[in-house]
Nucleic acid binder design. Structure first.
Length: 412
DNA sequence: TCAGTAAGACTCAAAGCATC
DNA sequence: GATGCTTTGAGTCTTACTGA
């Protein structure tokens, strides 16, 4: 909500509406004047409007069309104050929109905007959400419903591997601060599974050697404050904290620690929008070889898909992603690759499945052995042998005998 | 027939994207 | 940057199903 609009006043004595609509702000004027006519103060209306984050723009676009309709049927706005049968008005208005060849989305938005307006004017739920209007819009709703289709999600490792490849450039100072910021933003998205807009309006809450904590507001209901940790992880090449520090330490000091300033690099740099951050992240994704058709949002989907693939429980994912209902959200939107596996399983007989399972186990074991062989060889060459931290649970016989896999490794 | 529950539909808001 | 449109997400209500 711009200050320009907030400060216009629009003061009129309650109960009187004198208005001629002619501009793109007519929807906002209509909303303000109808609320004012009912006795609501300008300040109260301002507060109501400013408490919408972005939806007001869509509502007012819809109400602008409503203002045009009132003009066409030669009615003043106060006509809406005393509707005996609001559902009839809604149906006639929406029918007019349909016959004016408005798009399905436009009709849907107009209905939504009108419902909100009438609700704010005190009409009952029953009158606003009538079966009459529901029936009128049945086909439009059907057309707008998302097609139930399979959509593959890219493998998160593609992006992580690409970031690993950038480490030498980072170490040689060959990456610009903007590039480092974009990669850091990706890392934070991957490891916090936060929405870009939430990260964009975050503030730095607390820092320590091993973690930075950022705090943000979640505007999707239930609206709340959330903290995300940017932590160290074992693989330094893709450590979000390392990448975050790599650009954050170089940004100009004294940039205020307030919402929407976190990602700003300098005072000279113009205010960074969520869109700018989104474009920078998309550029990195494309450099990594991820198709342009995938949006920034897909990072979240890829991260959750990877968690599901590695059998992280739904409850854990639920907590991690701050979703309220994993069953209906994560399953529906993120677990998109499982269909392929499901088809493979359905298309195979028990015998083939058993064999495949054995082969898979064999393959994993062989990989582990091969990895350990190189470690042991390295240890034999070096006077101080060190087990890699991730495989410290493995115990080796003192004399390696590579012919028999199972005799070498004892799993605890 | 009824109560409990699961699944689906509807609504509204926020976020994201494309285009000018 | 403004605007129109689509996607994502959650709350609430309705419908379908199941077993007693």
């Amino acid at each position: 909500m711009g200050a320009k609009h907030r400060n216009k006043g629009w003061a009129l004595p309650p109960g009187s509406i004198y208005l001629f609509f002619s501009g793109s702000k007519d929807g906002e004027k209509l909303f303000r004047q109808l609320q004012h006519a009912r006795g609501l103060s300008s300040n109260a209306v301002n507060h109501i409007i400013s408490n919408w984050s972005s939806q007001w723009r869509i509502h007012f676009a819809g109400l602008t069309l409503l203002a045009g309709y009132l003009k066409r049927i030669h009615q003043q706005p106060d006509y809406l104050l005393k509707l005996e049968q609001p559902q009839i008005f809604m149906a006639n208005y929406l029918e007019d929109a349909i016959s004016q060849k408005c798009s399905d989305n436009s009709v849907k938005n107009q209905r939504c905007a009108l419902s909100v307006l009438l609700k704010f004017m005190g009409y009952s739920e029953q009158q606003i959400h009538s079966d009459l209007v529901k029936q009128l819009l049945r086909k439009i709703r059907m057309r707008l419903r998302q097609t139930d289709k399979e959509k593959q999600i890219w493998d998160l490792d593609i992006l992580l591997n690409y970031i690993k490849q950038q480490v030498p450039l980072l170490e040689q100072n060959l990456l610009s601060i903007q590039q480092r910021r974009a990669i850091a933003a990706i890392q934070v998205m991957v490891f916090t599974v936060a929405i870009l807009a939430e990260l964009h309006r975050a503030v730095l809450f607390r820092t320590s050697k091993d973690e930075y904590i950022i705090q943000t507001t979640i505007l999707k209901s239930p609206q709340r404050i959330a903290e995300f940790k940017i932590c160290k992880i074992p693989d330094e090449r893709i450590c979000p904290l390392r990448w975050f520090k790599s650009w954050f330490a170089e940004r100009e000091p004294d940039i205020p620690n307030k919402a929407q300033e976190l990602w700003r690099i300098s005072h000279a740099e113009r205010y960074i929008q969520a869109d700018d951050l989104s474009k920078a992240i998309s550029a990195v994704m494309q450099s990594a070889g991820i198709s342009k058709t995938y949006s920034v949002t897909s990072i979240r989907a890829a991260a959750i898909t990877k968690l599901l693939k590695h059998n992280v429980s739904s409850v854990k994912i639920d907590r991690f992603t701050l979703h309220s209902d994993t069953a209906s959200t994560v399953r529906q939107y993120y677990d998109k690759n499982n269909n392929v596996e499901a088809r493979e399983v359905l298309g195979q007989t028990e015998e083939e499945l058993d064999n495949e399972e054995d082969e898979e186990q064999e393959r994993t074991l062989l990989e582990e052995i091969e990895h350990e062989r190189s470690n042991v060889e390295q240890r034999m060459l070096s006077p101080v042998g060190v087990l890699s931290p991730g495989l410290s649970h493995l115990e080796f016989s003192k004399t390696p005998q590579w012919h028999s896999h199972h005799s070498i490794i004892v799993l605890h």
